[in-house]
Write a protein that binds this DNA or RNA. Structure first.
Lengths: 145, 145
DNA sequence: AACAAAGTTTACTATTTTAGTCAACAATGG
DNA sequence: CCATTGTTGACTAAAATAGTAAACTTTGTT
């Protein structure tokens, strides 16, 4: 039940983008630098997010990445589903036909409850929430120094 | 975020044990047969459960496995933690020292919320719940035939 | 005592997934 | 046209997963 680095790096990259994005596009190499993630790897991770239209990219000089929505309109559940493929702990939830016990299986019901718990948790968090929380953490650190 | 077959098979094995266990110990090969799981593989999966004392085993003729507690006293969270190692989606939750960003990291906070959601879900289910649910499913199938 | 029936343990292996790297390519602005 | 930036596909090393096999230990029965 581990989250892949794709999901973790991708979320951090999006958060970084939300944090540093403004008028001008943010370059992937800057995100990679700030987040200390391999640029080449991040390129792959970002791809499904661009594909899904959460991010818009512009190539060429002064190009980069931009969020297509307000951070408050990007729920974590969507991000994780794109990066992780799904939040389903077992295949038989989304594809009951892969297991002939599916209809009688009570453990399947438990995994289903589990998935719902995960989804509910991720449903309630937006990029905006993360940005704000991060700002608060940063200022509190500055003050304590 | 997939659950391993260890977790799934192990849970099913325990459920089977709770279902068929009575006076006499239940033999692993019978569980393996009923659940259609490789006996050899199941031996490995069962090991940590025996080690943790959820199951007691007796070797030799007429030996087998027995639950050491009432099914109502076995919570799924405990089973999954034993089989899966942990329910933690990222290491930095239980081991903050593995990441030097841990204290400032807001994504870490999200994974923490996620873990709690999973734990709460699994905390609320016992083997007894599964046994009862399974009995209900079975009788409703019989009736509909 | 011997044997058969259980579980235990260790060693090994094939396959898949993960986490990347590398290089060629495409588009864009100056 | 060229430097810059993102895109794509090929490739790979390492780790995890999902087993298999076999030797071993314990225990009840004969």
């Amino acid at each position: 039940m581990k989250l892949s680095t794709r999901a973790r790096y991708g979320t951090r990259a999006l958060l970084d983008l939300a944090r540093h994005g403004g008028e001008k596009p943010v370059q992937l190499k800057d995100i990679a630098g700030r987040q200390n993630i391999s640029l080449h790897y991040l390129e792959h991770i970002i791809a499904p997010l661009v594909g899904a239209g959460i991010i818009r990219s512009t190539r060429g000089v002064r190009g980069g990445l931009r969020l297509t929505r307000q951070p408050k309109d990007v729920k974590l559940i969507e991000v994780i589903q794109l990066l992780e493929g799904t939040t389903t702990p077992v295949d038989c939830i989304s594809n009951p036909e892969t297991c002939d016990r599916a209809d009688l299986c009570v453990t399947r019901d438990v995994w289903c409850v589990m998935k719902k718990a995960i989804d509910t948790a991720l449903e309630s968090v937006t990029l905006q929430d993360l940005v704000e929380k991060q700002k608060r953490k940063e200022t509190s650190v500055k003050q304590s120094v």
